[in-house]
């Protein structure tokens, strides 16, 4: 039996889920989610610093889905979304947990895993240097991403990136990125 996307994400909720979305990730959706979350963060009286960090991380996570979400495999429940993604945001004791999910071709997983491992094995100072190196030396890819999103998330949060590649079928994985934004940094 293939990995069940829905039950994986429903298992993430610890009762303080402030937003859950699954479906097509387009520019309007990103704008609406950002507005909604910004209003919630203000209503929760979060500090400006935490508010800005959550907002920044959310921008990068959603735009990662926008630029990199892979094709939906045949047989998946949603065949209409051009860019299918899932987003879950939970309020936890000292911050927020943001989890995103998207399909990815099996041939792309090694490269992505290497990039995340490099980030997770770097100190905060090394991440700053890596960020500046990519900023100054790498062009924007054909997909429109800058190659900086994950590095920026790690830099802003000061936390390791959680991730899992769930095998969906022979050619496809469902990639989940699990980000903690708190007052760690």
């Amino acid at each position: 039996m293939s990995f069940n996307v829905e039950s994986y994400f429903s298992g993430l909720s610890d009762g303080n889920q402030i937003l859950y979305y699954k479906g097509n990730i387009d520019s309007d959706l990103i704008t609406r989610v950002l507005d909604m979350v910004e209003e919630k963060l203000i209503s929760f009286n979060e500090s400006p610093k935490l508010r800005k960090r959550v907002y920044n991380v959310l921008v990068e996570s959603l735009q990662n889905l926008y630029h990199h979400a892979g094709a939906v495999p045949a047989g998946f429940e949603d065949q209409t979304s051009e860019r299918f993604g899932i987003l879950s945001i939970n309020k936890i004791h000292d911050g927020y947990r943001i989890v995103t999910g998207n399909f990815i071709g099996a041939e792309e997983t090694d490269e992505l895993e290497k990039r995340i491992a490099r980030i997770n094995n770097s100190s905060n100072e090394e991440i700053i240097e890596l960020y500046k190196h990519i900023l100054n030396h790498q062009c924007i890819s054909v997909k429109g991403g800058g190659g900086l999103g994950l590095v920026d998330i790690a830099r802003k949060t000061g936390n390791k990136l959680g991730y899992v590649f769930n095998s969906y079928d022979a050619d496809t994985y469902f990639f989940c990125l699990d980000i903690l934004v708190n007052n760690n940094k």
């Binding site: 920044n56 735009q63 924007i140 429109g144 800058g146 900086l148 999103g149």
Partner: peptide, 11 residues
Amino acid sequence: YFNTSSSKCIL
């Protein structure tokens, strides 16, 4: 705020 793809354009 600026996103990472803007950061390259600002550079």
